[in-house]
Amino acid sequence: MTTTALVHVVVSGLATGSIYALVAISLVIIYNATRTLNFAQGEMLMISTFVGWSAHAALRLPLPLVLVVAVAAAAGLGWLVERLIIRHAIAATHFDVLIITLGLSLVLRAAAGLVWTHDEFPFPSFFGGRPVVLGPVRVAPVSLGIIGGSLGLMLALAALFRWTRLGRAMRAVAQNQRAARLMGVSVERVYSASWVLAAVVGAIAGVLIAPVIFLSSKMGLVAINGFTAAVLGGFGSLPGAVVGGMLLGVLENLAPLWLPAGIKHSVPFLLMIAILVLRPSGMLGRVRQRKV
């Protein structure tokens, strides 16, 4: 294995890792607000990307506008799901909400199949696929583009959480819901905003990754890797989600290089079990262990 090839494999892993990170972030945003897991995150990402693609196919929209359409669709979908379904189950247990989002993921995937068929479609990319030579290494612009785009989005999110009123409210709710309510934060607004924001992050991830893994009703399955990434980083921690995603992407690519065939596909899951057992709060999560 040459160094050039190794660098390429790592960069490629960082690119898919950025997508896992974005999905993990969107899961964590909802988790922090409502303490529930959104199993339909991947399918919401898929639907928004499909809507953007349909706009592209029907109106010949340029790619930046496709992204806008996808984001708008995601925002609408996130808002609707929260308002029409999740809010009615607010008294239910976490398990119930889990099943609801699970049902939702089935519904959305089946609906996508009925509207767009279960076929796979090529998706236009902002970035080219042919390699560029950077000194001693070659990298694909599409990988760099995905990494750059994701990092930009992460910075924007960090700014939003740090400096805006909404971001502060969301952090307050994540820390202590009752205290936040007493301080005058509208928890319901934060719920809504979290679902919308998570869906939007998902849609951007979808538009970035669709040229690589193609657009199809099953592309939402990428969310499983998002779960793993979020756990690796420590569920609830946004920086953890980023690190977990990147780490997962790179490891997933390095494992087939050196490990025997029998074990290489299990690496992400063995890693997840190991992290949970040794350090349940993840790499960057706050330690919240139980005593037994």
């Binding site: 976490h94 793993t228 756990v231 569920f235 065939a261 074990i263 299990s266 997840m272 079990i273 057992v277």
Partner: peptide, 26 residues
């Protein structure tokens, strides 16, 4: 997994399910 609760345990068991299928295949 004794120390894990709720979501974390669900995640560990989820990963366990994948590992079992991999093991059967290999």
């Amino acid at each position: 997994c004794l120390r894990l609760e709720g979501l974390y345990l669900a995640m560990a068991t989820l990963a366990f399910g994948f590992v079992v299928v991999e093991a059967i295949q290999n």
